[in-house]
Nucleic acid binder design. Structure first.
Length: 584
DNA sequence: GCCGTTTTCGGCCCGACTGTTTTCAGTCG
């Protein structure tokens, strides 16, 4: 769900409530407000819809939102502000949000900076650091000042989150290097990379070895490392040359499973799992699942399991949620009920359903792309060049599409064990009509349609536009349905529920475009489509042979959206796919 | 402040690293 300023503001307000309470030394409330903030972040724009639908009563149903928080949200939407928040800001006029972005600077230190030096924001902090006043604060010293200065610099040059597709190869490279270090038994990435999140903030790795200090030294001296944040006996943290942070933890090989579970996260998933473990008389850490000595106490007793993730979840009476599902929402409930989905395995996609060639803006011939696809182990691909509305890439006219079809027929006779489908990525024009004639579309085997213009239409107009396209009986698929380009273009706005319902009715598939900066559909939309019984396809939007290797990224999105193999059309062999399409 | 297989009161995840006042608080993931 998109986040408007309103949703983001609420997320920030509740996080600041958490910081203010933490700063004052109040117990437990910080965590409660933090959860409320996470709830706002997860909901995005739905928060206002929830409030409109049922006010405080409806808001209280949200996770982490109780009476007090619901009243604050209600006050915010009714009056545009929250009195208690305004009072806190007045009492303590400090930019908690901005200052806390600095690594190592938390609520208590922000309190002292304000108390002793009247530091309210980043500008004040820079001045105080320059005048070396920070080390004069009681209980602070020279090193604290240096650390803060370093943290400030790192924040200013830090790159934001990076796309999974670009981080994975780097993570693999580092894992390979650490694996070669003497004494290392196993090394793997965990964290958001293992969960295959859309974007990655930092690279989390761990290794198993008897002598950990030796591994730490090797790690901080890798060629990819620009600087070091901290280095202990079993944990180190560095800044890489590309601006990302990377953490390495070393543990004994026996506890591999427990560490993998702990380090994979996400944070909310682990908190929920650990809470559940406690309720069952266990305590869970990166060293294993332990029996509590006596129920109600926190004393750790005998080790129960630690070798694999599966045995830990099993001991708690549940199935193991695949990493892609570990987001701290309903996956643990499903795991307890043995109702986790049978996710589409990696390597299930048999054909790429969106491929551009040198007939338009691709850089390779149809034959060249087909050969590359075959080498990757695919057994078919759909040629889907752009249409004439995209004049700047030389989009195809009706006659060109027919001509291209004849060439594909020739190639298919020549190729052994591979099939090229005659397709298109036909433009959806502003009014929802299509850029090729119906008689042309009817001759194709795969008709994908997509939007490349008028991105800023109103929600109602954009919805109407897409519905009209879906209703065209020649259409098989909506390609990159959100039209976003991560970091460059916002998604277009329309009523996704209506589109999904219409796609179901007209037997139109939705695409998961695996190209890294598209990643479109997103996981939440995939899940909605799967629930509604709408079929999906995974494709790469390849413009170059190398792009077809993005397919696993699309499979990852499908997995995050709880999709099974049967939800994805192009896991079928080409014959079955064609007969499915023919029935439309 | 939130929440419920410990259920409307009494709990709230767990451990490593850093710096400093040397016994532990603060921060992070």
């Amino acid at each position: 769900m998109a986040k408007t300023r309103t949703a983001q503001e609420l997320e920030k307000i509740f996080l600041e409530f958490a910081y203010y309470n933490d700063m004052k030394g109040v117990a437990f409330k910080p965590r409660a407000y933090e959860l409320a903030s996470e709830s706002m972040a997860a909901l995005g724009d739905e928060i206002k819809e929830t409030w409109s639908r049922g006010g405080i009563k409806e808001l209280k149903k949200l996770p982490g939102v109780g009476q007090s928080t619901a009243e604050k949200i209600d006050e915010y939407f009714r009056t545009g502000k929250i009195k208690e928040y305004a009072a806190l800001k007045k009492e303590f006029p400090v930019d908690m949000w901005g200052l806390s972005r600095i690594e190592g600077l938390g609520p208590k230190h922000i309190r002292d900076l304000y108390k002793y030096l009247k530091v309210k924001n980043l500008t004040d902090l820079k001045k105080a650091l320059k005048a070396h006043k920070v080390q004069k604060i009681p209980l602070w010293g020279e090193k604290s000042e240096e650390k803060l200065l370093r943290g400030l610099g790192l924040m200013e040059q830090a790159a934001g989150r990076k796309l999974l597709g670009y981080v994975l190869p780097l993570a693999d490279e580092i894992v390979t290097q650490i694996s070669k270090v003497k004494g290392v038994k196993r090394c793997t990435y965990a964290g958001s990379i293992r969960r295959k999140q859309e974007t990655i903030g930092d690279i989390d790795l761990f290794a198993t070895a008897a002598n950990s200090e030796h591994v730490m030294d090797a790690f901080v001296n890798l060629p990819q490392v620009a600087s070091m944040h901290e280095k202990g006996k079993t944990r180190a943290s560095v800044r890489l040359n590309n601006g990302m942070d990377c953490d390495l933890r070393v543990v004994p090989d026996e506890v591999f499973g427990a560490t993998l579970q702990y380090f994979t996260g996400d944070k909310r998933h682990n908190v929920l799992l650990r809470q559940y473990a406690l309720s069952k008389g266990y305590t869970l850490s990166e060293y294993g699942l332990f029996k509590l000595t006596k129920k109600g106490t926190r004393k750790r007793g005998k080790l129960v399991v630690c070798k694999t993730e599966e045995e830990i979840y099993k001991h708690l009476g549940m199935d193991t949620p695949p990493p892609e599902l570990r987001v701290g929402e309903d996956e643990l409930e499903a795991a307890k009920k043995h109702a986790l989905p049978n996710l589409i395995p990696y390597g299930s996609v048999k054909g790429d359903m969106q491929v551009q060639t040198d007939w338009t803006d691709g850089n390779t011939s149809i034959e060249g792309m087909a050969k590359a696809a075959k080498e990757l182990g695919l057994s078919y691909m759909a040629v889907t060049d752009h249409t004439k509305a995209l004049a700047f890439v030389g989009g195809l006219k009706d006659a060109d599409v027919i001509k291209q079809g004849k060439e594909i027929d020739k190639l298919n006779k020549k190729l052994r064990g591979f099939r090229i489908l005659k397709g298109t990525e036909c433009d959806i024009l502003k009014d929802g009509s299509l850029d090729l004639k119906n008689e042309t579309l009817a001759k194709l085997e795969w008709v994908g349609v997509s939007i490349h213009s008028s991105f800023r239409l109103s929600r109602a107009d954009q919805t109407r536009r897409l519905l009209r396209a879906i209703e065209n009986p020649n259409v098989d698929c909506i390609m990159h349905p959100m039209c976003r380009i991560i970091g460059k273009r916002e998604p277009i706005d329309y009523d996704m529920d209506e589109i999904i319902a219409s796609a179901k009715k007209h037997r139109v598939a939705l695409e998961i475009d695996a190209f890294p900066d598209r990643s479109d559909l997103r996981d939440i939309h995939v899940r909605a489509a799967v629930r509604a019984g709408v079929k999906l396809v995974i494709s790469t939007d390849a413009h170059h042979p190398a792009h077809m290797s993005f397919i696993p990224l699309g499979e990852a999105i499908a997995r995050r959206g709880w999709a099974s193999k049967s939800d994805i059309l192009n896991t079928k062999p080409v014959g079955e796919l064609l007969s499915y399409l023919a029935k439309k």
